[in-house]
């Protein structure tokens, strides 16, 4: 972009570009080396800092949580407050149910909406506003979604329920999955789709078997991120599933969940309850880790093995 103001070829003798450029580059290069060094050192430093922080949290949780672990702790309902007995069985069960339900709703809806936005929608008013509101929703504090679920589901239906919790969590999940799916599908090269079309493959099959397949690991990462996020949510659960000492009875009744249980345990004045809280936190982390590994394995298993010919 030559601005007419800055370009005046008539003026002055022509300089030797090569020399001038080399001069600038040389001056730049010593500075660049310094900048390079500073950037890489601070990058390494930040990585170390992050690892130390994360690692120390993990170690703290493992050390403190391991003390609480026992078969009873994992399978029993909480005992009387202050007794030091019981466990977090209902909370584990409740988290599995609520997060499982929320993912069963949120992942397919999110992926389908993401496919719609990237492959069918174009840039009209409707898809643009869907994108905009997804972004807003991602940034919304989860307690707001809790309040909405409380007013629209709990109050109108008259009771705290698993459904309300699962729906609230799926609403947190959907926009994350939508945006990640859309962005991942968009970077699948157009030449793939073109190749598919040129073979007379119907569009839905192209999307399912070619586009989605190349974008698989990105989409799975999005789903894992979203599930991890909702597994640790507390605020919307207080207002939807409430939390209870009892095992699951029905989808329309209250249920317990790990984040709620952790919060309850830690707010008690007993040492054993704090240990239980650490234990519950450890279990939550292990569950998220297990889910993440499991999904990744599932995604990787179907590799290049299909259809080898006996020649």
């Amino acid at each position: 972009m030559l601005r007419s103001r800055g370009v005046n070829l008539q003026e002055g003798p022509r300089t030797n570009y090569k020399e001038r450029l080399q001069d600038i580059m040389l001056r730049r290069s010593s500075r660049r080396r310094l900048v390079d060094k500073v950037v890489s050192i601070s990058a390494i430093f930040s990585v170390i800092l992050a690892v130390i922080l994360l690692g120390s949290i993990l170690i703290e949780v493992v050390i403190n949580g391991a003390r609480a672990l026992s078969i009873n702790f994992l399978t029993q309902p909480p005992g009387a407050i202050g007794s030091g007995l019981g466990g977090i069985g209902p909370a584990i069960e409740g988290t599995l149910i609520v997060v499982g339900l929320a993912s069963a709703i949120g992942a397919p809806v999110g992926v389908l909406a993401g496919i719609y936005l990237s492959e069918f929608a174009g840039n009209g008013i409707f898809p643009s506003s869907v994108r905009f509101f997804s972004d807003v929703l991602v940034g919304l504090p989860s307690i707001v979604i809790g309040i909405v679920a409380y007013i629209s589901l709990v109050l109108t239906l008259g009771s705290f329920s698993v459904w309300a919790g699962a729906l609230a969590l799926s609403i947190i999940m959907i926009p994350i999955v939508v945006r990640v799916t859309e962005e991942t599908l968009k970077v699948v090269p157009n030449s793939m789709k073109e190749a598919g079309h040129s073979l007379g493959i119907p569009k839905r099959t192209i999307i399912l078997h070619i586009v989605l397949k190349s974008a698989k690991s990105g989409v799975i990462t999005g789903i894992i991120l979203a599930i991890s996020r909702i597994a640790g949510e507390t605020a919307p659960l207080i207002m939807t599933i409430l939390g209870t000492d009892l095992f699951f009875t029905s989808l329309t009744g209250p249920v317990d969940a790990l984040p709620l249980r952790i919060w309850r345990l830690v707010s008690q004045p007993y040492q054993y309850a704090h240990d239980f809280g650490w234990g519950a936190a450890l279990i939550l982390i292990l569950m998220v880790l297990g889910m993440s590994l499991g999904l990744r394995l599932l995604a990787h298993r179907r590799g290049f093995k299909i259809g080898t010919i006996a020649a």
């Binding site: 793939m192 190749a195 190349s214 299909i306 080898t308 010919i309």
Partner: peptide, 10 residues
């Protein structure tokens, strides 16, 4: 533009 996720056969 071969399909990147597929084997030669596929």
């Amino acid at each position: 533009n071969p399909f990147p996720t597929m084997s030669i056969y596929d």
